[in-house]
Design a protein around this nucleic acid. Structure first.
Length: 561
RNA sequence: UGGGGCGUGGCCAAGCGGUAAGGCAACGGGUUUUGAUCCCGUGAUCCCAGGUUCGAUUCCUGGCGCCCCAGCCA
């Protein structure tokens, strides 16, 4: 099975790929060329991953190519930091644009020349109206717009003005270049859309070479045509722009005629995916940064320990359609767990330690027990875990007065220590406040490795670490950033941030083999979940992030009562 | 009384006139040295109303509902 969910020879079917097959078999194209066109005004998130997987995936399936093109037409919002991060994220996701790295700004000179041509053809004009006036003249959704008084000025005059706009003679907002289409169109995008605006701003790539910049509508389709893009895939909100996209292609001497197709964007429960909101979360410090593990950004997932393959698998299960949809976050969680279950090695770690003294275990005795690294993959081998008279177990694996369905340790009860021995709880030691601070247990030497020669069973197996040899660590447990599936539905989405989405635990104890875990590499802490070392890890000071917890039917049952 | 889309089980989604795939979730049950994994099993007549047809989720008509568009953002 490939990680796009298909098996060898099985073609993915959706309306876009069907259209491509039709174009290919009709001979309209020989090769398929797609492009992923991010605007460098923020970090990539999982919604972008859908577009990336679609565009690069199609290029791969049809033996074509996919370009990475920065849609850098608005210097007031774009930054080099984003340009760099976007490239790193696309690569990390597993895609390669080869030599096809482009920028809309690479085409500024050509776009400008075509704009002059449009003016000469009487198909564009310089408008002196202010932004507010243009809005008034535009009309409303139900009323047609009115023509600007400058609409029919002579082409020579528009041309002169346009050249002076470029020359920097006018301040921001003084004039714009507009296409002359139809002020009465039901499609507002056709009511003489703005093609160029004056922006005295420094551009990350062109510096101060320009003070007029093309709008998205003008730059995008022409960039597609210049690059020979055959299928320009974008999200539904651009559907209304297609007539304009086509109008420009038809009225300009572009080298090719790309076609635009629209599909629905990804929505996910328990998170937000709008650039505006993600920027706000970062700028206002509601999260630690773009790569905060609770962020739905590619860099956030990476830091959290989510493998790129899990993201690709998730995307492959999505359908490319035109219907609005919101995917339950449980779907993503499932893909992460499934991937990690197959790949992550197992280790033991105790997050909330409770000391256990095994009274009949000889003082000073130490031994090492063999533990498998992956129960379903013997080839991954085994490791040795130190064991002695004093160990730590998880606090929540002991209850002094357990309900009937609780199978773990309790006074007088016997359980198995994973890979070690059966132990029985004999005594509970409490502090002055009445809190349990230590357990006194006995072990059965005959059960070494975890099986009783007499065949007796225990109802639970719990994890543990050696008190002396285990290493201290900080563990950050991450949950979904928002407590409700539809953040913002109640008004302010910021109010829906779950204050417990990050729980930092100090004083956790890890089995010694975790001392040299590689940053970002996933491991399963048995019975707890998947974790990986965070970049904040310092020598002798490990910091682990919880990528995702294991499914926990006990917690679910306990919650129900 | 503008234009563009969409409407199949809780969430996605196949289906392209012949009698409703699959995934996730939920709920049962089995296996298990992770209450994990794994394995079984359980649910819809397809927004509504007419019409065409031997037969419609698939075609037609009319409703209803939801989403997007009035940035010199993308």
């Amino acid at each position: 099975m490939n990680d796009d969910g298909t098996t060898e020879g099985e073609a993915i079917r959706d309306f876009i790929r069907e259209a491509i097959r039709a174009d290919l078999s009709a001979g309209r194209h020989e090769t398929v060329v797609t492009r992923f066109p991010p605007e460098p005004n923020g970090y990539l998130h999982i919604g972008h991953a859908k577009s990336i997987c679609l565009n690069f995936g199609i290029a791969r399936e049809f033996a074509g190519r996919c370009h990475l093109r920065f849609d850098d037409t608005n210097p007031t919002k774009e930054e080099q930091e984003y340009i760099d991060a976007i490239q790193a994220d696309v690569r990390w996701l597993g895609f390669d644009w080869g030599t096809h790295l482009y920028h809309a700004s690479d085409y500024f000179e050509r776009l400008y020349a075509w704009a002059e041509r449009l003016i000469g053809d009487g198909k564009a004009y310089v408008d002196d109206l202010s932004a507010d006036e243009i809005r008034e003249y535009r009309g409303t959704l139900t009323e047609p717009g009115r023509e600007s008084p400058f609409r029919n000025r002579p082409p020579e005059q528009s041309l002169d003005l346009f050249r002076r706009m470029r020359a920097g003679e006018f301040p921001d907002g003084a004039r714009v270049l507009r296409a002359k289409i139809d002020m009465a169109s039901g499609n507002i995008n056709l009511r003489d859309p703005v093609l160029y605006r004056i922006l005295h701003a420094h551009h990350p790539r062109t510096g101060d070479a320009w003070c007029i910049y093309p709008t998205y509508d003008y730059a995008h389709g022409q960039s597609d045509a210049i690059e020979g893009i055959t299928h320009s895939l974008c999200t539904l909100e651009f559907e209304d722009h297609r007539p304009l996209y086509d109008w420009l292609i038809e009225n300009l001497p572009v080298p090719s005629r790309p076609r635009q197709y629209e599909f629905s964007r990804l929505n996910l429960t328990h998170t937000v995916l709008s650039k505006r909101r993600l920027v706000q979360l970062v700028r206002e410090g509601h999260v630690g940064g773009w790569d905060d593990p609770r962020m739905p950004t590619i860099s956030g997932f990476r830091r959290r320990g989510v493998p790129a393959a899990a993201i690709r698998d998730f995307i492959s299960r999505l359908a490319i359609t035109k219907s609005d949809s919101t995917i339950e976050i449980a779907m993503l969680d499932h893909c992460i767990r499934e991937m990690l279950n197959k790949t992550a090695e197992r280790r033991m770690a105790v997050l909330r330690p409770l000391k256990v003294v095994i009274e009949n275990y000889p003082e000073g005795k130490k031994e090492e027990l063999e533990a498998v690294n992956h129960p379903e993959r013997p080839d991954v081998g085994t490791r040795r875990v130190p064991f002695s008279r004093e160990i730590y177990i998880e606090r929540e694996d002991f209850m002094e007065d357990p309900p009937k369905k609780f199978f773990r340790l309790a006074p007088g009860r016997e359980v198995r220590l994973r890979f070690a021995y059966f132990i029985t709880c004999r005594d509970v030691v409490k502090n002055a406040a009445g809190e349990v601070v230590e357990l006194r247990c006995t072990y059965d030497p005959e059960t070494r490795g975890g099986n009783a020669p007499d065949g007796r069973k225990v109802k639970a197996t719990i994890h543990w670490v050696d008190a002396e040899k285990s290493i201290p660590a900080e563990v950050r447990q991450y949950g979904h950033l928002f407590g409700r599936p539809d953040p913002g539905a109640g008004g302010d989405y910021l109010a829906d941030i779950d204050p417990q989405s990050l729980e930092t635990l100090a004083g956790c104890r890890l089995e010694p083999s975790l001392a040299d875990a590689a940053v970002g590499e996933a491991v399963q802490f048995e019975r707890l979940g998947y974790f990986c070392a965070d970049p904040d890890t310092a020598p002798g000071r490990p910091v682990f992030n919880r990528t995702i917890g294991l499914r926990d039917s006990w917690a679910k049952a306990a919650a129900k009562g």
